[in-house]
Each structure stands twice: as C-alpha cells, then as structure tokens.
Design a protein around this nucleic acid. Structure first.
Lengths: 235, 235
DNA sequence: ACAAAAGTGTTTTTAATACACCCATGA
DNA sequence: TCATGGGTGTATTAAAAACACTTTTGT
C-alpha cells in the first residue's frame, strides 16, 4: 500500500435505477439528459456526491432532487468504473436501485420533473454503461425477490392477490399456479386480509390485503422461496 | 441532474478482504500499515485506483502488488463512503473479497510481503471502517455459500470430504450431519473421487476428491442449498 | 344465462431430516 | 487389540408440484 499524496482524485457519481409497478406492469423511470455529453439521450437518474455526504445519503438526496421521491426502498447495487465509461472525464459511479409504487408518486413525477416511465421491455437505449447497470439491477431483483419478500416494496398499501401474482409473473416472465402461490403466501403469515374488495378487474371482485409490517421486517431476511427453481429462470 | 464542472473530485480506493482456509480454519490476511495515518495498525490490503484502470482491474492489481496473489476468486462487495471514514481526506473505498487456499500461496506471502494470517475469530481491531467491511464480507460469504458452491474456492485442487465438511462447519459455526452432507454433495455431481487417500488425519485415510470444473462453472449459479435454514444461522 | 376472473383441496412426488453402526488402519 | 476418524443406509417428515372445478356477479 502506498499513501495518497500523489494519487489522482476522480469524480464519484451515483446512478439510480428506479423500478416501479403500476398494478399491471413493471416499469423503469428515465430522464432525458439536459446537458452534454449525450444531451437529449435517455439516462438513469444520476448526480455527484458531495464532500459531506455518505453514499446512501447522497443516493437519497439525488433521488429526492430529481424525482421528489422520499422514503422509498433504495439499495446499493454495484460500483462501475470502466475508465472510458464517461467520455468527458473519468467517473466512478455507484449504482443504486429503488422500488416504488408508481401510483403513489404519479402526479409529482410527471408534473414537476422531466422523467418518464417505460415498460421494462420497451426502454430506449441509455447513455454510457447505464444499460449494463439496468441489466445487473434486474438480475439482482430477480435473485433477491426469489428468496425474500422484496417485491412488496412495489405495491400500494392495499393490494390483491391477483395483482401480486401478476407482479411475480412479470418479474420472472413465467406463469405461476395460483393455488400453490396462495399457499406459499399464506404460509408466510405476511398478509392481512381486509374486508374491502377491488372490483376494478372483475365482477366478483378480489379481496384487498395489506402487509403485516412487523412480520415483514422480521422475515425480510428469511428465505421464503416464492419462485420454484429460480436458477432456471435467471436468463 | 447537474453537470460535473464544479464538482469535487475525490480519492477512490480499493480494499480487499482476503479469506483463506488452511485445511482446518478460516483465516483473514492483514497487513501492518506502513504510513500515516494509523501507522503500524492492522489493516486490509488497499490501494488507490489509477486513471486507466477499471474497478476489477484495479482490485486485481492491488492484490497482486501487495500479496503476489494472482488468478484468485475476487468479487466486488460494496462501496463505502462515510465522509469521515479516512481522517486525512475524503476517500470512497470499493471493497472486494478474495477466497484462497492458504497453502498454495504460503511461502510467497510470508517471505516477500509483510502480511499475516489471523484466525477469523481472533483478528485485531482494524483501522477506519475496515472492521465493518470484514463483517459485511463474512455475511456475504455465508449468504452466498449457503446457496452456491463458493467455498470450493478456498480448497486445494484435491481435498477430502471431512476437510470440506469442517470448512462448512467453520463458516457457519454449526455441526453438520455427515451422511446428509455427503448426500447433498454427491447429488450435485460436482465432485470426482480420486484413487489417492489423505492419511494425515486418520489411520484409515480419507479419499481425495477434485472438482469437476465444467460442472462447477455450469452450476455455480444454481441454488444448491448446502445449509439447512441458513437464515437461522446468519447472526 | 353467460362470461370472466376469484377462490378453493387433494394427491403425488421430491427433498430434508434424524438417526447408529461397521470399516480400515497404525500404533 | 484398540482407539481414531472415515464411511455407509433407511425410515420419517415436510415441502413442492401438479392438477380442475365451483363461486360470484355485472351485463
């Protein structure tokens, strides 16, 4: 190890991959870049860290500044540092991913900020290495959600089982047997059934459920195994 | 997002948490720091990234420079960036962890470099936030090794089942039933039995095995579930 | 009365667990 | 011959998977 005296200082950025669910589809939030290089190209939300900020702190701040989002699920993904990843200057970027319920923030996002939701399978090409970041974030979510109740972060406070199932089916691009799915869900004890029904998708209506927050926190690290043989799916 | 013109550039470091197994115990490699601040305190292997290096590249280079290790398992862990983590100057550090077979590198490590192996449970306090890095690395290994055949990276080319079992028992600090353990192992198809026996630990001798490299690569991402209910163990 | 989505049980198959004795050998 | 660690098999239990019909209700 050598000391730092004659070492080169470089820019450290944060980029946020923001996933959202609207009750039907998994989407990603992108913005049109407002400055060179690559002006007017689509990009992840990003910014630079300031001298007085820790990493998570900086990530939360950037998320808040660019989208108005606060208090959402945010997790560090990976540090990206190819020397030529930004053509202007050497920048190391620490990527974070966020999970949100789209409806909860719909208005503030579209009105105040120049961000746009894209279907996860229909997104435009992104600048720099942002496509790679998104790919790795998708892998991470698939991996983690196969074992932990991560995807609840994408849902509103009350939601129906069919919604939840279609979320899982979307994330893993697979069909799930609904009897087995419900059995696994109920065996976790994470859900509380409400009186109310959602009749927007059927005549019969589907019962709303909410998360048992305490159990959710307690069991987040538990291995719940929602997805059969997830390794077969991770493409 | 704003552009980079008036942003502060900062130092980016790499720190490597190097785990090794000597056939009996899990150990960690540390060095005594040769310069201020915290001179003569124990530390992880670290260095700064150069303008022309990617992250993995820089990590490999630092590992090679400080230990002579090359071609070992090395994986990015997490970026650490508390503003005050290094008292001299703001430094963001990207931590990596490495897994090696201690015997394979024994001589070069002790002779050429000023590094020392410590039992994982008897290490000294480290500088800065290095203790936190080690803790997170241990968690990661426990998590990953519960699902993937990661711990083979710590073993020599030929090894015995009792060795492997004591490695797992050490990492998870638990006792494993050897009949069930062997059943899981053989069901993976990852092992090839050799003719030779290791008689250093018993009169009867234990058969050596080697990894089926092709199957290992193919199945590394598979969920193998070596450890029953790992979440109960991850303390 | 019918279309469309919600909800419900049972059987089969597979994997996990618990458990105890014989084997081979060098000292 | 005996002490030491290596190796082996079976029965039980639990979880995963496969599978199809009935219910509700708005139109």
């Amino acid at each position: 190890m050598t000391d730092a005296t004659n070492k080169k200082r470089i820019l450290v950025a944060i980029d946020c991959i923001i996933f959202g669910f609207d009750g039907e589809h998994l989407k990603i939030l992108l913005i049109k870049r407002g400055f060179a290089p690559e002006q007017d190209k689509w990009s992840l939300m990003g910014g630079f860290i300031n001298p007085d900020e820790g990493m998570d702190e900086a990530a939360n701040k950037i998320l808040l500044q660019l989208t108005g989002l606060d208090g959402v699920y945010l997790e560090q993904l990976h540090a990206f540092g190819r020397p030529d990843r930004d053509p202007m200057e050497r920048v190391v970027s620490v990527a974070y991913f966020a999970l949100i319920d789209i409806h909860k923030y719909e208005t503030q996002l579209s009105d105040q900020y120049h961000a746009e939701w894209f279907l996860i399978n229909e997104m435009p090409k992104l600048i720099f290495d942002h496509d790679e970041m998104v790919e790795i974030a998708k892998q991470k979510i698939r991996y983690k959600a196969a074992l932990h109740p991560l995807l609840f972060e994408l849902l509103p406070r009350k939601f129906t089982i069919p919604q939840l199932q279609s979320l899982y089916e979307g994330v893993y691009n697979t069909k799930i047997d609904n009897r087995n799915f419900i059995r696994k869900l109920t065996s976790t004890g994470l859900l509380i059934k409400l009186e109310e029904k959602d009749k927007s998708n059927s005549k019969k209506g589907a019962f709303y459920f909410k998360l048992d927050k305490k159990k959710y926190k307690a069991k987040f690290q538990a291995f719940l195994n929602f997805i059969p043989n997830p390794e077969n799916l991770i493409s």
